[in-house]
Amino acid sequence: MSDLLLVVAAALIDGDGRVLVQQRPPGKPMAGLWEFPGGKVEPDEVPEAALVRELEEELGIFFDGQALTPLTFASESLGDRHLILMLYTLRGWEGVPEPRHATALRWVRPAELRALAMPPADQPFIAVLEALT
Rank of each mutant, 00 (worst) to 15 (best):
G27P: 05
P47L: 00
K40E: 05
P43W: 00
L5M: 14
T69G: 13
V19E: 01
A10I: 04
A31C: 09
G15L: 09
A11M: 08
A127H: 11
G79L: 08
M86F: 11
G60Q: 04
V46C: 03
G15K: 07
S77W: 14
G32R: 07
V8P: 00
M1C: 11
P70Q: 08
V52G: 01
L12Q: 05
A111W: 04
G15D: 10
V46P: 01
D16V: 06
E112V: 01
I61D: 12
R81Y: 12
I84K: 13
D16H: 13
M1Y: 11
I13K: 02
R53S: 00
E35D: 07
M30G: 09
G92C: 15
E76H: 13
A115V: 09
P99Y: 02
F36I: 03
V128K: 12
S75N: 15
V128D: 12
F63H: 04
E76D: 15
Q66L: 14
G60I: 03
W107D: 06
I13Q: 03
V46I: 07
D80I: 13
V52R: 03
Q22R: 08
Q123E: 10
R24E: 07
V41I: 13
F125Q: 03
E48D: 10
L129K: 03
D80M: 10
L55F: 08
T103D: 09
R24K: 10
V8W: 00
G79R: 05
P47V: 00
P70C: 10
R114F: 07
A102L: 01
I84T: 14
M1E: 12
V21I: 05
A111E: 06
P110Q: 01
L55Y: 01
R91Y: 10
L116V: 04
I126K: 11
G92H: 13
F125N: 04
G65D: 02
P43N: 03
E130F: 03
R109F: 08
